[in-house]
Structure formats: structure tokens, C-alpha cells
Amino acid sequence: MKTLWFAQIAAILQLEMRKTFLSRRGLWVYLLALFPLIPFAGHSIESTIRGRPCDFGHDTNVYASIFQLLDLRVVVFFGCLGIFMNLFRGEVLDRSLHYYFLAPVRREILVVGKYLAGLIAAVTIFTTSTILQWIAMYAHFPSRTVLDYLNDGNGWSHLIAYAVTTVFACIGYGSLFLLTGALFRNPIFPAAGILIWEGINSFLPSILQKFSVIYYLKSLVPIDAQPNLEAPFALLTVNTDPVPAVVAIVGMLAFTLLVIVIAALQVRRMEINYGTD
């Protein structure tokens, strides 16, 4: 039976990967992922052309701020919305969900298969984007400076931490949007609700902050943010009540598991009603 589950998940992945990576509908996700490259590449090009020396520490802080404000809160958030929300809702719009529902596959397996397919796509796209942004940020520094930062400083650990944070952002937001797409016919309002909740999280009491994805992500980033960032951006990036990385990871995984279980229960009850009889 276990082998059958694996075979079925593999079959679902095969079907879904093509849709998530190659569909025209998903083109904007790639553009969104590439968007943060523009300021970093622009900064590097401008600095190189003008021959203006930059402060390595300052640029590192700028990257940390942009990663939190733009990458996590906008790019990965909306990118995951586009990928995961469509896993079920997209099929309802295409009137093709019955294809899966008429196969001898447990609906829980279907949820897991679709989630994994979305996760592979999201992690590939956004982690690549994070790494490319990091490279673009430091491209204008002399190679020796960058190598020193990587080998003798915290370069590798920072880069890995940013990549891991991106992966966990995909895991957390992905599960939330999978559930939203399965629960609501029109998920725009719930998605807006999640966006507001995640946005105001920093202004909420400490206990409420823990019920959000961004709270755990902020505990995973290697640098808080640029110290002299203006309000309200400073509030958005500062972690007032950080938890150890291991707690953040376990908390995020537990949260994701809970959300996926709820999504599976919802999909188990889901009906196909495209409006014909």
C-alpha cells in the first residue's frame, strides 16, 4: 500500500509540475520572482560605472531589509498565492478537477501530491531568485572582498540562512494558500485577510504575533535589518520577541502540518459542481 501511495504521489507530481512550471498562467510568478533583482543589479551596475566605492556592511544591511520587506512580504507571499491557490481553484475554473476525483486516489494523497508539486515549483523559483539577488548585490565588490566575506566572515551562513528562510516561507505560505484555495470559491478576500494579518503582525501583542508565518520567518533571517531604517519599516523588520531558529523551524513545520490536515479534510468533503445537471 505504501508503494502505491508513493507511485500515486509521483504520478500527481508528474502531472502538476508541468502545470506549475510551464503554464502561461504562471508566467507572472517568474516576473515577480525576478523583480527584486532590478534594484540590486541596478545598484551594482551604477556603482561599477561611476566607480563609487560602497560600504560592504551597509549593503549587507540593505539586502537584509529588502529581503524582509520585499522578498518575504511581497514576492514570496504573492508568488505562493499564485502557485498554491491555483492547485485546486485553478482546476475548478478549468472544470478539470473531476479527473483527479475519479481516480482511485485518496483525496489526502491528492492534497499531499499537489502541495509537494507546488512546493517544488515555489522553492525552485524563489530560492533561485534569492540567490541571484544576493549575487547581484555583491557583484560590484572586488572578488577578494566577497571571497573573504564568504570564507572568513559569515557569507556562506548568511546566504544559506536566506535560502532556508525562503524555503520555509514557501512551506508556510504554500500551505495557507493551498487551504484557502480549497476552502473558498472566491479566495481574494481571504487572501487579502492573510496579507493584512501578516502585515500588521509586528504591531500586534506578542501572543498574537505567534499565529503568523512572518513571525517565525523573522526568527530565521540572519540579520534583523538595516538598523537606521525609518518607521514603520523598522517595526516591520525588527523581531521584538525572537525565538531560536530550531523552535521557529519546528513551529513552522507543525503549523504547516496542521494546515495541510485541515486542507485534506476539506478536500475530502469537496464536491464537483461546475453548474451542470
Binding site: 478549468d94 472544470r95 478539470s96 475519479l102 486516489v105 485518496r106 461546475y274
Partner: peptide, 22 residues
């Protein structure tokens, strides 16, 4: 409610005239 058992012995040719994209 048990599709994993049901569709081992049942085939359904629906009226839905839509197919997975591509």
C-alpha cells in the same frame, strides 16, 4: 467516500466536456 477503493472497480464517463489543459 472511499475513492481509493471505489474507482478500482468503477469507471465514470462524465458529461463534463473539459479536460486537463494541454
Amino acid at each position: 467516500n472511499h475513492p481509493e477503493q471505489l474507482f478500482r472497480q468503477l469507471g465514470y464517463c462524465t458529461q463534463f466536456d473539459s479536460f486537463p489543459r494541454g
